[in-house]
């Protein structure tokens, strides 16, 4: 029994590194220095912050990494008045915040480095720093959720797995970035969301409804906009999904809600979408739905699915 439980845990841990994104576990707003700073000034930062390396930033952009080793080298070669720029390593391997943890794990293994700067894929800006410790902490935190779930399951009261949500709500807010016009990757966000909801042990019918509505919303973003993002909040009462994009916006929201109304071109219809069923489908799957749109600005779709539905005997 125990061996099986351990095995299950291990697989789960392996699964998690394929599902969790770097942005979720990295240290945000890391300490950084400017390239023109003197190496001598590093001493204080290294000591007080108890870190062994940090990113070098110029106008918000990463230009290099400077480490304790660089500092010691300067110390021994009497170069403490030199600028950081002169001694930092500029050949830096970076990760993106929306990459999965597995990418980071591979990089740690391959390079043997202790930390990687994390960038925003779109803007290129530094958003955090990732150490092996960050990964372990992040996975452990998530597994704790799993553990609670396993324990509660024994009491055959699935719905109560969400009791602790209020204690740490952020744990149950998922956010997904949706890339516009990338038809092949479309649906990834909804697919990952579905996986996560499954892992939370929610009733299959609830999961199916949330997954279908999110998938339709994601397809709308991919087909009609340049992309956006989706946040999913899970409270003990309901799952609320918010989808945002930057335009072009919907001219007539009421018309768009009608079954069969569509502005899709033949190209889209031949891809299997655009028959005007997307938004009505979302409405059908959700308990509440709100669609707000401003031409040229963007659209916000919010829908929620109650966890205690009519068909639920809890």
């Amino acid at each position: 029994m125990l061996a099986m439980a351990q095995k299950e845990e291990l697989t789960k841990q392996q699964e998690l590194i394929y599902e969790m994104r770097i942005g979720l576990v990295m240290t945000k707003n890391p300490v950084s220095v400017a390239p023109e700073m003197q190496m001598s000034k590093l001493r204080e930062i290294l000591q007080t912050k108890r870190i062994s390396g940090m990113p070098v930033l110029e106008n918000g952009f990463l230009v290099g990494m400077v480490s304790l080793e660089d500092f010691i080298e300067c110390l021994t070669s009497d170069a403490m008045n030199d600028s950081v720029a002169k001694h930092m390593s500029t050949d830096v391997i970076t990760l993106f915040e929306n990459d999965f943890l597995v990418t980071a794990v591979r990089e740690f293994e391959r390079t043997g480095f202790g930390r990687f700067p994390v960038l925003n894929r779109e803007t290129g800006e530094l958003v955090g720093i990732l150490t092996k410790g960050d990964i372990l902490r992040g996975v452990a935190k998530k597994l704790e959720v799993e553990f609670h779930r396993a324990e509660k399951k024994r009491y055959k009261n699935k719905m109560h797995i969400l009791d602790h949500v209020q204690a740490d709500e952020t744990r149950f807010t998922f956010q997904y970035h949706i890339v516009g016009n990338d038809f092949n990757r479309a649906g990834e966000a909804a697919g990952n969301l579905k996986k996560n909801l499954k892992r939370l042990g929610l009733p299959p019918e609830i999961i199916r409804r949330v997954a279908i509505a999110s998938y339709e919303a994601e397809m709308n973003l991919v087909i009609y906009t340049s992309g956006g993002y989706m946040t999913v909040r899970i409270s003990p009462e309901m799952i609320t999904v918010n989808v945002f994009d930057n335009g072009p916006g919907i001219p007539d929201v009421n018309q768009a809600m009608q079954e069969g109304y569509s502005t899709a071109e033949n190209r889209i219809r031949d891809l299997g979408f655009g028959a005007g069923m997307g938004l009505p489908n979302i409405k059908k799957c959700s308990d509440e739905m709100l669609l707000r749109s401003k031409i040229g600005k963007g659209t916000n779709l919010r829908f929620s699915v109650k966890l205690y539905g009519k068909n639920d005997d809890n």
Binding site: S262, N266, R269, D270, A275
Partner: peptide, 25 residues
């Protein structure tokens, strides 16, 4: 078929076309 390109390419004369596509095309 619900794919116009499919119907264009593969349907035959005097076929009955079963579809859920209802737009003018």
């Amino acid at each position: 078929s619900d794919l116009l390109s499919d119907v264009m390419a593969n349907s035959e004369e005097e076929n009955f076309w079963i579809t859920l596509q209802k737009h003018p095309n």
